[in-house]
Design a protein around this nucleic acid. Structure first.
Lengths: 240, 240
DNA sequence: CGTTAAATTAATCAATTGTTTAATTAATAT
DNA sequence: ATATTAATTAAACAATTGATTAATTTAACG
């Protein structure tokens, strides 16, 4: 917004101002998550951070280096949630996972979007970062805990821990991935009430299944639709 | 591969050769799905199709127009699967959905990748195409059928049809979205055996839940891991 | 046949992109 | 104080991109 035309040269050490490096990291995190790294120019990131584009190359060497830093920051935050869930033994991991994971994504839906987009990007160097910094560690933590719960008799004995984890993550993550599509059609919005509803539904479906004949009573009540589903967002120009 | 330097002018009507328009559509479908439209230049699409880049503007007006055509073609193919599933009444829709949907994605994993990427692109015009050409129609077809099955006593009475559909799609789609990551770590590959295993696992988990104490015996047996999980793909250059 | 329309290309355009360079200012060390 | 190093910018660069234009060849139509 503010043109912020600063002259060249090292700035006077202002104690309050965050340094340019973290400013770039924060700005890029938001922009990359929202629209994808490819669709955001370095000039745009620099402007949002209030510094010149050359700072990206100074601190991160590349646009790719900036992207990598953004990715690593995001991955570490999601991994912390997984570690917390896997570390507790008060309840079945699967239940704790559904609860904490959905609420974490609800608090910041941009995280799974960033991950999924870069997984799909086909860029092997990003995939490697995600695989080694997140997936590998998550797989070391969760399936063994699921296996524990199976042994303890809290889950069916014939479950495959890894496929189960795959289904579990899918159920939790997909609503957030599909959100941009479903919001206008189903009319749902991200708020604490929605998270509560989604957690309750997912927990019960995962635990009891869809076929169970006796309704246990703890299912999510009411439908997700609330707003006007037919209103539609203001149609933008057909061609641009 | 072949330089294919053709001179200007309308080509002699060769009966065998497919016309340039469908050649472009097919080439773009592959390339866009694999790497995302942003990362593929029109020159590259044209070369793969064996025509000049100007043909894209001639037939599709824009690169965006080409992308839209690709998207619509993909959406219609997935929608056909959904319509087929929703149209039959021999078994519960949910079971039929798991079976047919997973096998369709397994046969062409690029489809969900294309959709998810463009959903996440944040580009409202693509989102509108997906929402109106696919999501809206799918929601008109599936949840009512789920509600039917609930009424018929085949599914729990307290299920929310729409949230149930969301979970169902998540369980089926997520393995294919995450495939690029999980393949090296879990060592799974797309083939009919994997599809069988995934269908069996998903069907049982969805129907019976994870908590059920009596193992019914039809669960997926064996783990997904088969190959060497620690081998790792050849590390490419660290910087490019 | 001759004229018009359709399909195609080569060449070029204008815009945008990521990156580098040289200059500039302040902090730090000698 | 002076020299060196760190942090920052403006300006320019080279490459790539999507798109347009004019020319060219064949098909279709009278």
């Amino acid at each position: 917004m503010t043109a912020n035309t600063r002259k060249p040269g090292r700035p006077r050490q202002a104690d309050n101002a965050q340094d340019a490096k973290t400013a770039l990291l924060l700005a890029a995190s938001k922009l990359f998550a929202a629209r994808g790294a490819d669709a955001v120019s370095v000039r745009e990131v620099a402007e949002a951070a209030g510094v010149s584009p050359a700072m990206i190359n100074y601190y991160f060497r590349n646009k790719k280096g900036l992207m990598r830093a953004v990715l690593e920051r995001g991955l570490d935050r999601v991994l912390a949630v997984v570690a917390e869930v896997a570390g507790q033994h008060d309840e079945p991991v699967t239940a704790a996972f559904i609860d904490h994971y959905i609420r974490a994504l609800n608090a910041d839906p941009s995280l799974p979007q960033l991950m999924v987009r870069e997984v799909l990007s086909g860029n092997p160097s990003y995939q490697k970062v995600i695989a080694e910094r997140f997936v590998r560690k998550a797989i070391e933590m969760m399936p063994p805990r699921i296996a524990e719960d199976i042994t303890a008799g809290q889950l069916r004995r014939d479950l495959d821990p890894r496929l189960t984890m795959l289904s579990l993550v899918g159920m939790c993550v997909f609503p957030f991935i599909a959100a941009p599509l479903l919001r206008p059609v189903l009319g749902y919005e991200f708020n604490d009430a929605f998270a509560d509803q989604l957690v309750a539904h997912t927990t019960q479906l995962f635990n009891e299944g869809a076929k169970g004949t006796a309704a246990k009573g703890t299912a999510a009540k009411g439908t997700a639709a609330k707003g006007s589903a037919t209103k539609g967002t203001a149609a933008e120009k057909d061609d641009d």
